[in-house]
């Protein structure tokens, strides 16, 4: 199963991943429209952290033993059978934020309209998550995980 590997050493902190994540999860998937046209652009599902010269972009790790899955009382958070990815079903989420509370990575956030949880979906449907595809320094890689 493919997962995003973070190579902290080579993250430049440019946040292009963030930009592309936002665009990918927007209505139009058009960068200009997303930023300049759509009334509210989606929240990024990738978190670029920066401390001194170290930066890295973190998104859902799709944990094998995912606390968010346990915590989700509606079953909105589920594991995709095919890819093993932890996904959030927008229809089912009621915004109780249990998932936010238990995710040790802090990579689930409230959606831009604050109604439901928003998290990395590995850009389902794309060959490669857009953060990985657009990382100019290959600090993110989409690789088969060890297991």
């Amino acid at each position: 199963m493919k997962r995003i590997r973070i190579d902290e050493k080579y993250c430049m902190g440019c946040r292009l991943c963030e930009v592309h994540c936002i665009v990918q999860h927007s209505k139009t998937k058009n960068i200009l429209k997303t930023y300049m046209g759509e009334c509210s652009k989606p929240a990024p599902r990738i978190f670029v952290e920066e401390k001194g010269y170290v930066t890295f972009a973190l998104q859902c790790r799709h944990c094998e033993d995912a606390p968010c899955l346990d915590a989700c009382m509606t079953g909105a958070m589920y594991r995709d059978k095919e890819t093993g990815a932890v996904l959030c079903s927008e229809d089912k989420c009621v915004g109780c934020w249990m998932c936010i509370m238990v995710c040790p990575f802090g990579v689930i956030s409230r959606s831009s309209d604050k109604k439901i949880a928003s998290k990395c979906d590995l850009c389902m449907g794309e060959d490669m998550p857009v953060c990985v595809k657009n990382c100019p320094n290959e600090a993110l890689k989409y690789e088969d995980s060890k297991d």
Partner: peptide, 19 residues
């Protein structure tokens, strides 16, 4: 964020795919 955390813990969380 995660970056601020002690490196050992951070690596523990992020170093591998998943938790």
């Amino acid at each position: 964020g995660i970056l601020a955390l002690p490196e050992k813990y951070r690596k523990h969380l992020v170093g591998d795919v998943g938790l």
